[in-house]
Design a binder for these strands. Structure first.
Length: 265
DNA sequence: ATGTCCACTAGGAGTGGA
């Protein structure tokens, strides 16, 4: 089974990239963030035509999350939660589905803007609410995945220039301690568990040639319970989908993909 | 490099967000 997470930075602007990712990589499940479209406007038909069912929790203009499921020989995803309880006013940032025998959550953590901005406190509160929600709904023995854009670097290996970012947003102890709380709940960082010493990034700023210069961050993460972790065979970043294609502009995030030793269906 | 790209409003270029 192949499961991915990808912040697409507008599913409408990125439709060609996203459909090509599905067709060429054939992921079984994809956690998606930054749809930037409401559920009515979501281009469902285009996804059905390439064999994917979608569960969306969108809003106009900003945010929005989804889970795509390869529909060949599989029932469509069943939505079990749309929106993080108590945090609905802060944007459409969480959806949980049951699909292919797994519980899968796609999240888009608030950016926070800067550590002095009111949005930073909102971000920390959102992460606290996420931990509380995962604690309440946790099935310790289940195959559970939380994938998404966490808008934080878990450790110094996850940032291209740690010295320049000490104490800055995405790198603060306040953010990292909340990430650690998710691990304590039983949600392990699949990439880091598999590769304790690898510096691999998933996001590069559009500006200043950051991708070319390898000035990136690892902020797009797939977390899983031990039942998932035991079945991980690889975790990779699909950098091809961060590359410009003739006149087409990519998202500033690349897909992160985990391969599991787990049959589909 | 304050560097780019998105959606929205508006009917063009500016704003807010990331």
């Amino acid at each position: 089974m192949r499961i991915a997470t990808w912040n697409v930075n507008s599913v409408v602007a990125r439709l060609d990239f996203v459909l090509d990712f599905l067709v060429t990589r054939q992921p079984d499940i994809v956690c998606v963030q930054e749809l930037k479209i409401d559920d009515q406007g979501f281009p469902r038909l285009a996804f059905a035509q390439v064999g994917y069912a979608v569960a969306t929790h969108g809003q106009p203009q900003w945010n929005g999350v989804a889970v795509f499921v390869r529909s060949e020989a599989a029932p469509p995803p069943e939505i079990v939660q749309a929106g993080l309880p108590g945090q609905e006013a802060n944007g459409a940032r969480l959806i949980t589905v049951r699909a292919l025998g797994l519980r899968v959550t796609s999240i888009y953590v608030p950016n926070g803007k800067s550590i002095t901005h009111p949005d930073f406190a909102m971000k920390l509160g959102w992460l606290d609410a996420l931990a509380a929600h995962l604690r309440e709904t946790h099935e310790p023995d289940a195959l559970s995945i939380v994938g998404g854009d966490f808008n934080l670097c878990p450790g110094d290996l996850d940032t291209w220039n740690p010295a320049a970012h000490v104490g800055r947003i995405f790198h603060t102890e306040a953010e990292r301690s909340r990430f650690e709380a998710l691990r304590t709940l039983g949600f392990k960082d699949l990439f880091r568990e598999k590769y304790p010493n690898d510096a691999t990034f998933s996001w590069w700023d559009y500006r200043a040639g950051a991708f070319h210069k390898k000035h990136g961050l690892r902020i797009d993460l797939l977390l899983g319970t031990d039942a998932v972790l035991d079945r991980v065979t690889s975790v990779s970043v699909d950098r091809d989908f961060r590359k410009k294609r003739s006149d087409r502009i990519p998202s500033d995030h690349a897909p992160v993909v985990v391969e599991l030793d787990l049959p589909v269906g």
